[in-house]
Amino acid sequence: MIKALVVDDSAYNRVTIARMLQSAPDIDVIGTAVNGEDAIKQVLKHQPDVITLDLEMPVMDGFAFLRWLMQNRPTAVIAVSSRSSDKSVFKALELGALDFIAKPGGRVSARLEEIQSDLLAKVQLVAEVRMENLRRRINGQNDGARAESKVPELAASAIELVAVGCSTGGPPALQRVFQALPLLPVPIIVAQHMPPTFTRLFADRVNRLTKYDVKEVSDGETLNGGSVYVAPGGMQTDVERDGERLRARVSAATPQDLYAPSVDRLFESASHSCGGRLVAVIMTGMGDDGSKAMRTVRERGGKTIAESADTAIIFGMPGEAIKTGAVDHILPLDEIPAAIERLCRG
């Protein structure tokens, strides 16, 4: 049974979120809290497995509570907030929130029940969360360390594209990789499972915090070296060859698509366009998106990297990729930038 704590200053939101959670037979709402201070008391009393957390609250907001929580009793947190700005959601993820859900219709809305399926899915993945990895990442995220890689160098200019896929836990991990990775002469394209709008906000944030030119990719855009292109949420992104250049093709997702953007689809198209001149990297996330395409990348001569269980917050995606036998290098997060650099620079 998953013990859940609901933290929100709105009585309507507390009751509604608690009711949605209680509808699942494997979730027990052990308490609610009206602000961060109340939440601390409830955490110490009930020791929940997961917390749904509003970010805007009086007395002590969600950010201050997250700082206390990760220092004193690291616990899986799903931010449920009406704020969709960069400074709220992505700040919460940096402070240790596992994932987020945007409240539809504002802070208090009758549309809140629209998030039920997404909320239950994210709360139920708690069993897969490696909290010790999350705690280490939070405590060491500003150490500036850049681990060396034992990955062998390739011939110069052998790589023309790096493709990266991740899901839960991905935004802070990606930010860390791009802050440590020197500017490369090849483009990087990212499929991060994230709703529409948030992929653009995420790209804007990483653009400000790293040396890379980071943007949400547009349909038909040429992929240039020294740039990072984030696949738009809710859409599908492919890579196609146009003579000597690579272009992104962005199209509408279909109701049958389990993930949008899909890591498998991005990797498959990139492998078709680049063959052996591709590096595919799969990092933290639930599910198995990307594992099928890793086989294709390897079969066509591309190089493959997966984040190890030592650092992945959710080992689902990298773990499934590793099971295929198609992963060349299994590395902790802080060794991935150096490995990418060695493969790309030669």
Rank of each mutant, 00 (worst) to 15 (best):
A4M: 01
A4E: 01
V7K: 00
D8H: 03
N13I: 10
N13R: 03
T16N: 06
L21G: 08
I30E: 00
A39Q: 02
A39F: 00
I40E: 00
Q42A: 11
P48C: 11
L53M: 10
L55K: 01
M57D: 00
V59A: 03
D61N: 06
F65H: 04
R67V: 03
L69N: 00
L69E: 00
L69I: 06
Q71E: 05
Q71P: 00
P74M: 02
T75N: 01
T75V: 02
V77H: 01
A79P: 00
V80A: 09
S81H: 02
L95E: 05
L95A: 01
I101G: 00
V108C: 02
R111A: 14
I115R: 03
S117T: 12
D118E: 15
L120H: 04
K122P: 05
Q124T: 10
Q124M: 14
E128C: 10
V129Q: 05
E132T: 15
A145K: 11
R146L: 14
S149H: 11
E153L: 13
L154W: 03
A155G: 11
A155Q: 15
A156V: 12
V162G: 08
V162I: 14
A163Q: 11
G165S: 12
C166K: 05
G170T: 08
G170F: 07
R176W: 06
F178K: 05
Q179R: 15
A180T: 09
P187S: 14
V190R: 05
V190T: 10
H193T: 04
P195S: 10
P196E: 14
R200N: 09
L201A: 08
K211M: 14
Y212D: 06
V214D: 05
V214Q: 01
E216P: 04
E216W: 09
V217M: 14
V217A: 15
G220S: 14
E221T: 08
L223T: 12
S227R: 09
S227E: 08
S227L: 07
V239Y: 06
R241N: 13
R241E: 11
R245L: 12
L246P: 03
L246C: 07
S251N: 13
L258Y: 09
L258R: 07
S262A: 15
S262E: 08
R265K: 15
F267T: 11
C274F: 12
C274E: 07
G276W: 06
V279P: 07
I282H: 07
S291Q: 08
S291K: 09
R295D: 02
R298H: 14
E299R: 10
R300W: 07
K303T: 12
A306N: 02
A309P: 00
D310P: 01
M317N: 10
P318Y: 13
A321V: 02
K323R: 15
K323H: 12
G325R: 09
G325I: 08
D328V: 10
L331A: 13
A339Y: 09
R342H: 15
